[in-house]
């Protein structure tokens, strides 16, 4: 359950709208059920009153929409950003993808988001989800009493290792308690590194074989902002939608992750939206972990204007041939 209420946020937005400070509000809109929330643009206090929602399912990172809206709309756009979303926002500013003048960024303290897919796994026919301090009461078609799932069990993957220690690059911050980080985000990466190559190969072969090449991971990614994606270029010889074979799957996922390496803020949207639940963040985190350990710690989106590691170098950098020995030494 979020500490800050939807009322607080929509009230804030409504007053700015009414005062003429902003013309649009980019937020989350409620759906048919308690969990199917859609990013949406609100233009009036009435719309906010009717449809605005802020709860544990307001997972969507809204920063990427600002590229589109700052280009197509005239007038200031209020956007609600969770602490982790602000990294994406700041990275987009660094890359000059957003017209900052058109944005009124409001930071929202977040108490951690819930993963609808995790809740769904053990509940058929969810009719309602009520949020409590400790977790969720899941009402279904098939049991009279609601099932309880704790906040920790239902937590969204990215929130397990929350990096939301601070909001950055904001116009205004709503006061409130922020979720405290827990797990080391590189645990799973290290676990995979410690497997044998055969084990790793089979792990990824199994995960990537489910890929249906829907491109949702790419399309949702706030770092994937090319005007024309290499995968959409028919002359590149890359499959952009055919799940042709395991080579193409690896090719797509390696290149997708590589193209955002050094710019990926680890916002976790790719894994969240994957219809086949492929742990795509483990590819991105591998690059982040390698960058951190080879070239020094770097958090994309933390400092506006910072130089991404892949467009930078040091004359004393590690040689590719030394990478494995060096890392094995670190892990030992």
């Amino acid at each position: 359950m979020q500490k800050v209420t939807a009322k607080t946020l929509s009230g804030k937005a409504a007053s700015l709208l009414n005062a003429g400070e902003v013309k649009y509000v980019l937020g989350w809109k409620k759906g048919e059920f308690d969990y199917d929330i859609t990013p949406a643009l609100f233009e009036s206090a009435e719309e906010l009153e009717k449809d605005f929602v802020w709860n544990d399912f307001s997972c969507a990172n809204l920063s990427k929409y600002l590229i589109k809206y700052t280009r197509s709309l005239s007038g200031k756009i209020l956007v609600f950003l969770k602490p982790c979303d602000t990294f994406s926002f700041n990275q987009l500013l660094t890359e000059h993808r957003i017209d900052r003048q058109k944005v009124y960024a409001v930071g929202v303290p977040c108490s951690g988001m819930a993963d609808e897919k995790k809740i769904r796994e053990n509940a058929d026919g969810i009719t309602a989800i009520s949020e409590t301090e400790e977790g969720y009461l899941v009402h279904t078609l098939y049991s009279d009493a609601p099932a309880f799932i704790s906040k920790e069990e239902a937590l969204l993957e990215k929130c397990l290792s929350c990096k939301g220690w601070a909001h950055i690059a904001l116009d205004e911050q709503i006061e409130g308690e922020v979720f405290a980080p827990s797990a080391d985000r590189f645990d799973q990466v290290k676990a995979l590194e410690n497997m044998t190559p055969d084990e790793r190969y089979h792990f990824w072969q199994n995960e990537l074989s489910r890929c249906i090449r829907c491109n949702a991971c790419r399309d949702v990614c706030p770092a994937c902002t090319c005007e024309k994606c290499v995968f959409d270029n028919p002359n590149s010889g890359v499959e952009n939608k055919a799940a042709a074979n395991s080579f193409e799957e690896k090719m797509f996922h390696i290149i997708r992750a590589f193209h955002v390496a050094g710019r990926c803020t680890d916002c976790g949207e790719c894994s969240r939206v994957c219809p086949q639940k492929i742990p795509l963040h483990l590819l991105n985190r591998k690059f982040i972990n390698d960058i951190d350990s080879f070239y020094g710690e770097y958090q994309a989106g933390l400092d506006e204007g910072s130089r991404a590691p892949l467009v930078d170098y040091d004359t004393g950098d590690l040689e590719p041939s030394q990478v494995f020995d060096w890392r094995d030494g670190q892990n030992a």
């Binding site: 859609t38 990013p39 949406a40 643009l41 929409y65 249906i212 090449r213 829907c214 491109n215 949702a216 790419r218 399309d219 949702v220 939608k241 055919a242 939206v273 219809p275």
Partner: peptide, 23 residues
């Protein structure tokens, strides 16, 4: 307003049992 947030990905199409467009 319905299409505004659409990412333009192919998830709906590829999980849909009746979508039949091909290349």
């Amino acid at each position: 307003s319905l299409s505004e947030a659409c990412l333009g990905c192919g998830t709906c199409t590829f999980v849909c049992p009746t979508c039949q467009c091909y290349d």
